[in-house]
Structure formats: structure tokens, C-alpha cells
Nucleic acid binder design. Structure first.
Lengths: 193, 193
DNA sequence: TTCATTTATTATCATAGATCAATGGAAGGA
DNA sequence: TCCTTCCATTGATCTATGATAATAAATGAA
């Protein structure tokens, strides 16, 4: 249960055995069945989640009712609406399990306590957020400078496993295009080969 | 010189007088004339900059030679290619002064030293990066769900001062549209009123 | 002030991707 | 197994924005 968790934590910072014991006590195990929600629009994001097993998506729904996927998270990844988590404002996002999931959750108050006891974790989360920022910036610039086909090809190369596990229409939503357009792109690509 | 800097630092964390003296010694004053570069594509990003006075843009140039603006920074803002700064990989971005600027720069080694001495700063930068992430996520989702006109109107509302100080074609580049399209949008908006 | 350069506007035409609609497959529940 | 629902594909339009080009306006240097 905690193997992957420990591995990910110690990739960027070093923590003692004792510290890890404390960390373990503050994270809560949680199972989520496929299609269940960890967070729903309008609710306050109470948890930051580490994914032990399974896959989830964070998405929002616009005024026309169209879904836009902000991110997928797989084993070893982290999930939360950080804005809502830190401000206690209602979230605009939904977090939904795409498969049966095992998660480790931490509340805001446990989080504060934890950082008080283990300041090194502050760095860990900064790096996490920073990597996320860099990836999001690249995605934004990519959406400006690349065609839908280029973005799709890049996505398959970067996250081949993720693309496998997720229905096409969610890939389309992640790329900011319609499922019809993605379908056309795919058929064009298969002709090219 | 350090007034705004001190104000911004103490907005999110508390630091002692003594600590602030240390911080001051590690930031270097730098003037940049309009059109000068703090960072050029291919170079390693050696500094994280705080903007005391003036305005700058971070942008990249795609294969077709088109510029895409990642962000503007004004008084009180921070600038760097974080990826390059932390990995020492060559940057894909340019950072250019749009006006005569006064900056406070810190190098990576000073930064490491500083965080060692004042761990609370780790939190400060996490919050900074986190706010940037939230803003970038919103911009990304906005580019999926809103028309160019909607995005432009929103931008004027959010950063009216910034839009004033910057030429139209850079606003267009920031929005991911051409200057011609922005021009059309503006003339349509002026008719509507 | 004048000239050169940069920036903004406007018009026309081209196109990537959206929208609407119909069909065929695949998957999950009874 | 059948049936329902969801998902992917394909075709026929439509539309927002891009590309190109010409001109006008603004800016800055001499």
C-alpha cells in the first residue's frame, strides 16, 4: 500500500523512518469505485489525494454543458483542486474515478500539521506544483502553436499508457477538440502509416 | 527600492528584520532598458527576478517563427523559466523588457543558500508557483471553452492596466490569436456599445 | 518637422475544426 | 442471451479564425 507512496516521497526529498511513520498516520486510505467522485463542482475540496491504484480525471463543465478535462492521474500521481483546498472556496472542478481506485487522502488540517512537523515536505509540494505548472504551460503553448493532430501525436508519445486506459472522447476533451475531430485525426493517421 | 519587495514577501509569510537583511544581500539590483533581454532562448535561466519597476514578457517562438506569450509581469511580479532555472537545461523562452525596468535578481546558488537559512521561504515560493498554476489552468480551460472575444473581454476586466501598457499584437499573442482577429474583435466590441 | 519604422485596421479568401445527423459496434445489466 | 446504453465513426454543412495583402495610423529617430 505505502511502497509506491514512499518511493515517490523520497524521490525529491529525504525523510527519516520516524517521519514516514508520522506521515502514514495522517493519510487516510480510501477506495473509490469506478464512476464515483472524489470531488464535485460546488463542493469544497477537502482532500489532497495520492493515487495508489487506478485512474482518475479532473474536469470542469462549461456553460454549454461541455466537459473539459484538466488532468488525468494515474498510480503515483497527486490530485486536488489546489485553489479550493487552500482557500476553502467551492470548487469548479469534478474529480471522478475512471477505474476502481485506491487512494491516500490528507485533509487540510493534517496537511498543516504535517508541514509544521516536517518542513522538508514544503519543498516536496513546491516541486510537485512546479512540475505541474511547467507541464500546464507547455500544454497551453502547444494549444497555440500546434494543430490538433500534432497535439494528439505528442500526447500518445508522452503518455501511451494513459491513452490506452481512457476512452477516446476523454482524450478529445483533454485536447480541447470534439470526439468527431479526434476520430477523423485517428483515421487519417492510420492511413498515413 | 525594497519597499514593494518587502510588502510582497510578507503578504504570505512572516520574516524577521534580520532575515530580511539577509535576503537583501542575496538579491542583486539590475536595470534593464526597454527591448533588452533577461533571458534568451537557448541560454540557461540563471536568475529568478522580482519586478520593482517596469514590465516584461516571457515568450517562445514556434517552428513557423510565430511568437507566443506565456506571461506578462508587472511591478510586484516574479519571472523566470523555472524549468531551466532548476534543471540548468537551456530555456525555450525569451524574457524581454517591454519598458525600462528595475529588477531584483537572485541566482540559483543564492536561492539554495537562502532557503537553507530561511525555510519559511519555501512556502512563499510554493504559494507563488501555486497561484501561477491556478491562473494557467484557468487560461487553458478558457482557451477550450470560450471564444476569442470572450477571452479578450475577460482579460481586459482582469488586467485592465496591463492591457493598456502593452501593444495589441502582444495581447493577441497572449490570447493565442492573430493581431488581425483581435483587431476585428475590438471593432465589433466598439460597435456593440 | 520630416521620414522611416512599427503597429493597427480592413477586406478578401482559405481552412481547421465545430455542429448536426445518421449508423454501426462494443459493453454492461437483467 | 437479449436489450439498452454508451461510444466511435463517417458524411454534410457551417463558422470562427487564419493567411495574405493593402493601407492607414502612430511612434520614434534625425
Amino acid at each position: 500500500m505505502f511502497d509506491l507512496f514512499h518511493k515517490k516521497l523520497t524521490e525529491n526529498i529525504s525523510i527519516t523512518e520516524e517521519q514516514f511513520e508520522l506521515i502514514k498516520t495522517l493519510f487516510v486510505k480510501k477506495k473509490l469505485a469506478k464512476q464515483q467522485f472524489l470531488l464535485q463542482e460546488g463542493d469544497i475540496c477537502r482532500y489532497t489525494a495520492f493515487v495508489v491504484k487506478g485512474m482518475l480525471r479532473t474536469y470542469s463543465v462549461d456553460e454549454k454543458g461541455v466537459e473539459h478535462i484538466l488532468q488525468f492521474a494515474q498510480e503515483g500521481g497527486w490530485l486536488a483542486d489546489l485553489y479550493s483546498f487552500f482557500t476553502n472556496e467551492p470548487s469548479h472542478f469534478n474529480i471522478e474515478a475512471l477505474e476502481d481506485c485506491q487512494l491516500l487522502l490528507i485533509t487540510r488540517s493534517s496537511w498543516d500539521l504535517l508541514l509544521e512537523k516536517i518542513p522538508a515536505l514544503e519543498r516536496f509540494f513546491r516541486i510537485l506544483v512546479q512540475n505541474n505548472l511547467v507541464a500546464t504551460q507547455r500544454r497551453l503553448i502547444g494549444s497555440f502553436s500546434e494543430s490538433a493532430e500534432e497535439q494528439y501525436v505528442k500526447l500518445i508519445k508522452m503518455y501511451p499508457d494513459c491513452v490506452q486506459r481512457v476512452p477516446q472522447y476523454m482524450i478529445a476533451s483533454y485536447l480541447g477538440i470534439t470526439r468527431e475531430t479526434l476520430s477523423r485525426i485517428r483515421s487519417q493517421l492510420s492511413v498515413k502509416k
